[in-house]
């Protein structure tokens, strides 16, 4: 495992938050995913060893929680809310816009052809009063109609272009 020193430091710190090491499973998986982008087989075994568990104890957690990814995903993660309140005011159209803009289709393991984004149609993001909502990486965007989805897409594309040049 090639984790950043900062990640390793935070891992050792977070384990101290719990009287039982196993409780640190989710925090460790979050920290590793933030660092490495996804949870590899090696990561599962590493966490198991770190917390004195069997690898299956960690794997069953990784496969249960939708946020943990077992393969690399796009550089940016666009989560569009699918659930009723957002759908009532155009959530499906918002998702379609992102799919078209990045020539991809929404799915947990899908990556756009340029590797730039993963668009996911997720369940309720708990901001129903400002629907439709979209979570891009860790930032919530509110009232994302098709026009705003286009703007956000343009911004992501511009940032990608700036990085490559």
């Amino acid at each position: 495992m090639n984790l950043k020193p900062e990640t390793l430091k935070r891992i050792d710190e977070v384990i101290t938050h719990y009287p039982v090491k196993r409780s640190a499973t989710l925090p460790l998986l979050h920290l590793i995913q933030e660092d490495a982008g996804y949870i590899s087989e090696e990561a599962v075994e590493w966490v198991a060893k770190k917390l004195e568990l069997e690898p299956i104890n960690v794997l069953e957690v990784v496969t249960f929680y939708p946020m943990f990814k077992r393969k690399p995903i796009g550089r940016r993660h666009i989560k569009v809310c699918r659930t009723l309140s957002c759908a009532l005011v155009g959530g499906y159209k918002t998702c379609e816009t992102f799919e078209k803009e990045f020539h991809t289709h929404a799915g947990p393991g899908e990556v756009s052809p340029d590797g730039e984004v993963t668009v996911e149609f997720v369940e309720c993001l708990a901001s129903c009063g400002t629907a439709p909502v979209v979570l891009i990486d860790e930032t919530l965007h509110e009232k994302v109609d098709c026009a705003k989805a286009k703007q956000l897409s343009d911004r992501i594309k511009a940032e990608a272009a700036a990085r490559k040049s």
């Binding site: 938050h17 989710l26 998986l29 939708p66």
Partner: peptide, 10 residues
């Protein structure tokens, strides 16, 4: 008090 994050399960 510690903060503990879930991972997307209702």
């Amino acid at each position: 008090i510690y903060v503990h994050r879930g991972a997307g399960a209702y």
